[in-house]
């Protein structure tokens, strides 16, 4: 694959007091590709994703989006570029239904005076939202019940589908399968493949090596605040990934 990266981070440094979370980390993701980001606890994955999602700002380093240098002041800046993130807490409003969650903060307003008075195009949102969920195979059975009453897998699927419905370019998924059972995990992995097929770049942060190898195209390995290896999923193995994560293979790979 020689496609230009759609989103790229170069030499990102982020310190929290005396703790150096990121020490010149690089990262890149290409359109229509699933890039996995792995690393042991404290390797800097979450910090890097927060920076790429606009939720945190680096001390130094550069971000390039579609080849242009950008700076993100907040998550809204990222979203306006079609970059969506699903954090581990899912950020769903439990009392609202899936459609209301999908459109939360982005409601379609009625045209003219009614819209300015705060009235929404409820039926339009219901229709388009429903199709968007079904389109991704998010297997949402109940569109009108509160999401708080749904299973962990359903809620995960709703959060991922919501992000996918708005992400035009890049979507970050932080540990999307961590709390799920076997069947639910398969559902989320299928969802990831469908998002990829739409030409969106997917970044998957995960601890689960088999899932990473199953669904991703490339694996970025982080250790001690740096990316220490980029491996093609086809040509690597769990042993090699663990080796890169723990440093047992130092010297064999160049980032």
């Amino acid at each position: 694959m020689s496609i230009e990266p759609i989103y790229e981070a170069r030499n990102i440094v982020r310190n929290f007091g005396s703790v150096q979370a990121l020490q010149g980390a690089n990262f890149d993701v290409r359109p229509g590709e699933v890039s996995a980001l792995i690393g042991d606890n404290g390797a800097g994955k979450s910090t890097l994703v927060r920076i790429l999602a606009g939720a945190d700002q680096p001390n130094s380093g550069e971000l390039f989006f579609q080849g242009q240098p950008i700076s993100l002041g907040n998550p809204t800046d990222a979203r306006s570029r079609g970059i969506e993130t699903v954090f581990q807490d899912l950020a769903l409003a439990n009392h609202l239904d899936p459609i209301q969650n999908m459109y939360l903060g982005r409601e379609l307003m009625k045209p003219g005076l009614l819209g300015r008075m705060g009235f929404m195009q409820t039926s339009e949102m219901r229709e388009v939202g429903r199709v968007a969920f079904n389109d991704l195979g998010a297997t949402v059975r109940n569109f009108t019940g509160p999401v708080g009453g749904m299973s962990g897998g359903q809620r995960q699927a709703i959060a991922v589908a919501r992000a996918a419905a708005w992400a035009k370019n890049v979507i970050f998924l932080d540990e999307p399968t961590a709390a799920l059972g076997v069947v639910q995990t398969k559902g989320v992995l299928d969802l990831i493949r469908r998002i990829k097929d739409k030409g969106i770049a997917v970044v998957l942060i995960s601890h689960s090596m088999p899932h990473v190898l199953e669904v991703s195209d490339r694996v970025h390995v982080m250790r001690q605040g740096k990316r220490v290896a980029v491996l093609n999923s086809k040509d690597t193995s769990v042993e090699e990934l663990v080796g890169a994560m723990t440093g047992a293979l130092d010297g064999k790979e160049a980032a």
Binding site: P75, T76, R79, F87, D89, A91, L92, A93, N94, H95, L96, Q100, L104, G105, R106, E107, M109, M117, G118, F119, M120, T122, G148
Partner: peptide, 24 residues
């Protein structure tokens, strides 16, 4: 029931952090 104001009122009570993330 019908306005965005009402929806956001419930959303803030449900999960304020989620609201902040989506820019409310």
């Amino acid at each position: 029931k019908r306005s965005r104001f009402g929806l956001h009122t419930a959303a803030v009570g449900s999960n304020a952090e989620a609201c902040r993330r989506v820019g409310i």
